[in-house]
Amino acid sequence: MNTTARRIAGTSLAAAGAMCLAVGPALAADTTVSGNLLPVASNNVSKVSGTASVKVSGEMLTVTMVASGLLAGSAHAAHIHFGANARHACPTIADDTNGDGHINTTEGAAAYGGVVVSLTTSGDTSPKSALAVDRFSTAPGGEISYERGSIKVSPELAKAISGGESAIVVHGVDYNKNGKYDGATKSDVDPALPTEATDPALCGILKVAPAGGMNTGGGGGTGGSNQGLIVIGGALLLAGAGVGAFALKRRANAAA
């Protein structure tokens, strides 16, 4: 798509300005952003691990995510978060505004913004499904292996995600290590759920992934670099050939 767009722009130079505006969205090639999912600070989840990758093709997202070390057999809500006024960062203990020692969903949003995509296993992926606990992975064996394509988002959101400003957050923590979501503290986003069910466990900022080769060499290790010796050697060869030719000529003259 990108190549085609460039060709069009190149062959109609007179209209270049207008063309660039017209094909602007098409010029945006696929962008892949990825994030290293880290345990959310102070939420007692030091063993969790994960990596997420989102390919942005125009306004379509393909999300791939693997996470491990989570509470097994319980629904883990997972979302892409973004907020224009958020810090585009994962929360720290400084975000614990209610002082209970943990980061809950509301406190986390100050760092990474609200839900913009719900990473459900089927059906709707909009923020309306943020708490659709029957449509999120239950992490069999503590692991989530998620992939879903054709997730349509707004052009503004696609731009924010491909610009490295969004976060992937996996929720669900078992503070008391009893193998289920429970406890007296209710969720700040759904009073019908314990806070364990909705507190964030893993968070990663989706940054633009690297592309292309690397300049990892100086070139001094190959044979071609030692020009000094080559030049001197070549000069001596030329001189030798010259002197030799002179000598042969003299001998030939003498013989004649």
């Binding site: 290790g221 010796l229 001596l236 030798g240 002197v243």
Partner: peptide, 19 residues
Amino acid sequence: SILLLAGGSVLLGLGLDLG
């Protein structure tokens, strides 16, 4: 000429082969 050729060859060889 022989000495120059020999010396030149050796140096050229060093330059090309031994980096």
